[in-house]
């Protein structure tokens, strides 16, 4: 039983680490600001969620699990809000997004 929990923890932990590092690479490789927002988003959602799920398997059914769930909830509510605040502030200050192909109407 504890073996199974350990295996699940490893799987989720490796997945979360992989997506975090991919997001970090994305934030470095992307050519301009609005594309980098997507790289930040990938670490904030799936990377954070998978790592916190792995930690929840380790704590079992205790109060710490509830705290971890609340931390995950806050992260998932706060990260799009701050992402939107960042994008809106960039638009307001006149940073135009680069578009690769004309918008279809």
């Amino acid at each position: 039983m504890s073996n199974l929990i350990d295996i699940l923890t490893w799987v989720f932990l490796i997945g979360g680490s992989f997506f975090s590092i991919v997001g970090g690479i994305g934030i470095l490789r992307m050519p301009e600001f609005y594309s980098r927002l997507h790289g930040g988003g990938i670490t904030d959602t799936l990377g954070a969620a998978l790592i916190i799920f792995a930690l929840m398997f380790q704590t079992g059914l205790t109060l710490a699990t509830v705290k971890l769930a609340m931390i995950l909830f806050f992260l998932l509510v706060v990260s799009p809000s701050s992402c939107h605040a960042l994008a809106k502030s960039a638009v307001n200050q006149g940073l135009e997004p680069i578009v690769d192909k004309p918008e279809k109407s």
Binding site: I27, G40, A48, I71, L86
Partner: peptide, 15 residues
């Protein structure tokens, strides 16, 4: 943006 991501990762590191 990088600072925001750094903050999120700090939370995860503390956890």
């Amino acid at each position: 943006l990088a600072l925001n991501m750094f903050g999120t990762k700090t939370v995860l590191l503390i956890c």
